[in-house]
């Protein structure tokens, strides 16, 4: 067991290849078992997903007749989802897209601007500001859900468009996290040499031009990562949405689909799974596309102080 993880040493490998049996057992000890672990892990990771696919295409669409392996193929649930007047799925998707896009863009912009100031300028309260941000981020916004509910009831009395039960109001609440990505992005800005800024300034660029034309384009990878994290977070946001959005027309996908399966856990499974697939597919694709950035982004931002 203790030898399992030994990396191969090249001259040895050539000699052992002559003895076929021992080489196979060696392959197993060094690489093969990794495939075994990987396969088990893949089954563990995939079976619930396979179940969703199976449920989405299973014409009966209830819990009893659905298994992990898809057996039947029917698009009936997708038709119900897209055509049934009682399920405004398209509307939910548009709401979600609007909320996600607005929150992601605003959060990246605000965080990027603040991170630039924290990284490049020296001003009074800089350290204090950074630490305060870290402290505030420790508390998830929804801990104050009760107060937010009361606050937006008040706002709604004056500006009905931004009150409870409106997509705009819900978006506005989530914008409270506008500085959520400052630390991650600042960590990256700190690695961009200052000489670049100085060169730009000497060429006559204003501080705003330096930021928007020089620094921002360089920071694409970190914006991809934090943008993705924000986007996925907002798609999955459920707590505040369930408190804020009660009218079917203003719901997002998370509360909308929850209402669907909550009303009849057994028989609405198929329609729910169809909606879940349509929701998850784009997110998963973007995720896989950006995966190479994510690992580096997560660790670099987390570790750098």
């Amino acid at each position: 067991m203790t030898q399992d993880l030994a990396p191969s040493i090249v001259p040895d490998a050539r000699r052992t290849r002559r003895r076929a049996r021992s080489s196979r057992s060696r392959w197993w000890r060094e690489v093969g078992w990794r495939h075994a672990v990987g396969l088990i892990a893949v089954i563990w990771a995939l079976f619930p997903i396979s179940y969703i696919v199976s449920a989405a295409f299973n014409p009966l669409g209830n819990v009893v007749s659905t298994g992990v392996i898809p057996r039947d193929f029917s698009l009936v649930h997708f038709e119900t989802l897209l055509n049934s007047p009682s399920i405004p799925f398209g509307r939910w998707a548009m709401n979600t897209l609007f909320v996600c896009a607005t929150v992601t863009v605003t959060q990246l912009l605000c965080s990027g601007l603040a991170a630039y100031a924290f990284s490049r300028f020296r001003f009074r309260g800089r350290r204090g500001g950074l630490l305060t941000l870290l402290l505030i981020q420790m508390f998830p916004q929804f801990l104050a859900a009760v107060a937010l509910y009361t606050l937006f009831t008040e706002i709604g009395h004056t500006i009905p468009m931004l009150g409870l039960n409106t997509v705009f109001g819900y978006t506005l609440v989530l914008l409270g996290g506008a500085l959520g990505q400052v630390w991650l992005i600042k960590g990256f800005f700190d690695t961009v040499p200052r000489s670049l800024d100085e060169a730009a300034r000497i060429d006559g660029a204003s501080h705003a031009q330096t930021f928007f034309l020089i620094i921002l384009p360089l920071a694409k990878p970190i914006f991809a990562v934090s943008g993705l994290l924000v986007f996925v977070g907002v798609v999955a946001e459920f707590l505040l949405a369930s408190i804020f959005l009660t009218d079917p027309r203003v719901k997002t996908l998370s509360v909308g689909l929850f209402g669907l399966i909550d009303s009849d856990r057994s028989n609405n499974l198929g329609v729910f799974a169809a909606g879940a697939l349509l929701t998850a597919l784009p997110v998963v694709l973007v995720f896989l596309y950006l995966q190479r950035f994510i690992v580096g982004g997560l660790t670099s931002g987390g570790v750098k102080g």
Binding site: C110, F121, Q141, A147, T150, L172, L175, G176, L179, F211
Partner: peptide, 27 residues
């Protein structure tokens, strides 16, 4: 100058995170 970069996010943070926390205390 730094304020120009900090104010947008800071305002949103104050309005929808910090103030609600204070309000929770009051409630």
């Amino acid at each position: 100058l730094p304020a120009k970069y900090l104010v947008p996010g800071g305002l949103l943070l104050t309005l929808f995170v910090v103030y609600p926390i204070v309000m929770t205390g009051q409630l």
